[in-house]
Each structure stands twice: as structure tokens, then as C-alpha cells.
Amino acid sequence: MSDKIKQTLTYADAGVSIDAGNAFVGRIKQAVASTTRPEVIGGLGGFGALFSANFQHMQEPVLVASTDGVGTKLLLLQQHGRPHVAGIDAVAMCVNDMAAQAAEPLFFLDYLATGKLDGETLAAVVEGIADACRVCECALIGGETAEMPGMYSPGHYDIGGFSVGVVDRPNIVDGSTISDGDVMIGLASSGPHSNGFSLIRKLIEVGGADISHDLLSDGTAAIDSVLAPTRLYVPAVKAMLKESVTVHGYSHITGGGMFDNIERILPEGLAATVDISSWPVPPVFEYLLGFADVEKHERYRTFNMGIGFVAILPADAAEKAEAVLREAGETVYRIGHIHRRDGEPVTLIG
């Protein structure tokens, strides 16, 4: 037998600190608690999150689930030290998709992974998550923070979001009732949201841009608009439900832009014409698209170009809808109409 003395090792020696993980959980408890709902049982620390659902006010409750991430926007958020935005975006990309079916988000869980746990940075991510959850009245009931040495470059982390909501079956909005003659109302975006950032990063590279110091045409800082958090449309949809506005379809304008996200909810035989002159293209898109020649179809297929959410509804409900949405804090535009299809499913004019 060898007399060689074995090296003493701990988990911390391998790059994982259980103590740091426990301290991190202690730090975020207040942020998590600020999002609680009456249905939440217990708090952080359990093997599973408990939620006592009560749907007695609904005829036929249907659960809706969504999961998403922040995409390559995360690289710029890390580069420029904006973890709070990463948290907001992780929530927004999930709950906005559920809002497009008129569902109310009930709870949210996050998955955070990093090579070495930086409590300050990841706590800011969770605080961003909590801020977004409060806006949407959605409980942050659990999550996982994984410290995985060797998996990520120093200073890098990844985030995934998971959410569950509910909608009463008679209130589901899935596009099936969209009709010839319906109008389209666009809700303004806050910027690129969390889509198209692989192209955005390429545009910045090609243009040699310095988003930390560049200004947009309206004088605002480029970095604040390029990395603005994704707008949360849950309150707007809740307001429409509360005021009993008839809506035939909602579309969250994410990857695929105007084309894919509107086409996906159109019934067979119908098409949409979108008048792109009906809303002003925000300066952030003019700034980014000034660095290279990006064809119009590609622009509106990749970016939201200023419209982050669309409501499709009967023409006689449009004025009421616009009033409700403005009261809810949205900037709205009448952007197009639905008609019988005799060509492409989505056509841009203007």
C-alpha cells in the first residue's frame, strides 16, 4: 500500500460554497416575500413550492404554463452590469406569452446558473424578478441557484424563467374568433425587449458603436434604450378583462416579429394588413439599423420595431379598448385590419 498522504478537499475547494449559497438565499428572502399571494403556503427553503389554488370564481379553470429566457441580450446586460433588467425580462417573456391568451399569471420560478456565485449580482437579478412579479401580481414562489465551476466564464450567468397561470375557459383568447373586418391595436414596446439581440450585437460590432456613450436622436442614452427592460403587458390585459372588452386575439410580438406572431393566431382563410406608418419607429431602432443595410422584411421579422403587443378585436370595440388601454398606462396605435386572405398571411404597407 502507498504511504502517500491524500490531499484534504472540501466542496469549496472545488469551487462551490454552500455557505455562500445559504447567505444568498437569506439575502433574497425579502424580495421574494414582497411578491406573495394569499394562495402561497410557506416560504423559501422547502423541497417544492406550495400554492393552494382556489378557482371557485371560475366556471372552468384552465392552467397555462410558459417558460423562456433572456437570450443573448444577457451578454450585453452582463457586459454593462444590468442584472436587474435580466430579472425583469425573464418574467416578462413568460407572463406576456400567457397574457396573449388572457391568462392571469399565478406564480413564477427561476433558474439561475453561474460558475462562481456572485451574491451581489444574482441578488439584483432576483430583485428584478420580484419587481416584475409585483407588477403582475404574480408570486415568486421558488427557484434554483446553481453554482457550477467550469461551466461559465467569470462574471457570466444564465437565467431561465418558468410560470404558471390560469384562465377561465370561456375567457380564453386564442384567435379562433378573429373575423374579417376586425381591427388591430398595437401597444408600444419599451425597446427591442429580449428579441433580436444576436443581430443587435452584430450591428453594434459592424458599426463600431459605443452604446455606453452614444446618444439617440432624441437625446436619450443609447444604452438605456437598447437595454431597456421588456414591457409587462399583464396589467393591460387584466384591465381589458375587467372592463369586459371583446377581444378576438392577442399577439406578443417576440421572435418572428410582426409576421410570425400575428400569423400564428389567424384562422384559416384570413390575413392581416399592418400599416407601419401608423406608429413612430422608436429612435433606438433607427440608431441600431443605421449601422448596416437591413431589408424591411428582415427588420419587421426580427424586431418588434416599436409594437410589443397587439390586440385584434371587432371594429365597434376599438374605441373602448383604446380608452381602457390608455387608462392602464399603455401607448396605443390603430395599426391595421383583418380581411379575407388572397395572398400572404401578413402584409406590411406604409
Rank of each mutant, 00 (worst) to 15 (best):
I204D: 07
L232A: 01
D218N: 14
D224E: 15
R201G: 04
A239E: 08
I204N: 03
T254D: 07
V237E: 01
S198H: 04
L241F: 12
I276K: 13
L199D: 08
K202R: 13
S277G: 09
S198V: 08
P282K: 02
H248M: 08
G257F: 02
S278I: 00
G257K: 03
W279K: 03
A222M: 11
G219Q: 10
L270F: 00
D260V: 08
D210W: 03
A272G: 06
W279S: 03
H248L: 06
V245R: 01
S225D: 14
A236S: 11
P235I: 05
R264K: 15
K238Q: 13
I262S: 01
P267Y: 00
V247S: 05
E268D: 13
A209R: 15
V247Y: 03
L199Y: 00
S244A: 14
F259Q: 02
E243C: 01
P267C: 00
H248S: 14
R264Q: 08
P229Y: 09
S277H: 07
I223C: 11
Y233F: 15
S251A: 15
D224L: 08
G269N: 07
P267S: 02
L266R: 03
I200Y: 03
L270V: 03
P280M: 02
I223H: 08
E268G: 00
L216S: 10
T220F: 08
L216C: 12
E243H: 06
T220Q: 15
L232P: 04
L216Y: 11
A236V: 02
H252K: 06
T254S: 15
S198K: 10
G255F: 04
T246R: 13
G256D: 05
E205N: 12
T230W: 02
A221F: 09
H248I: 09
V226H: 06
A222Q: 10
I211Q: 10
G207Q: 09
H213F: 11
H252V: 05
A271P: 00
I200M: 05
T246I: 11
S251P: 06
G249E: 10
G207R: 10
I262V: 15
I204Q: 07
S277T: 09
P267V: 02
I211N: 11
G255L: 04
T273D: 09
Y250S: 07
A272T: 05
G249H: 07
T254Y: 07
A236I: 00
V274N: 00
V237S: 01
D275P: 01
D224R: 05
E205P: 02
V226T: 07
D214K: 09
H252S: 12
D260M: 06
G256W: 06
V237N: 04
V274Q: 02
V247R: 03
A222N: 09
G207F: 08
P229R: 12
R201L: 03
I223S: 11
D260N: 10
A239D: 04
P282W: 02
I253Y: 08
A271D: 00
A239N: 05
S278T: 09
A236K: 01
L227S: 12
D214Y: 11
G255N: 13
L227Y: 13
T254A: 12
I211R: 10
L203T: 06
I276L: 01
K238N: 12
E205Y: 13
I204L: 15
I253R: 06
K238A: 14
I200G: 03
T254K: 04
P280N: 07
P229T: 10
T220M: 14
L199H: 06
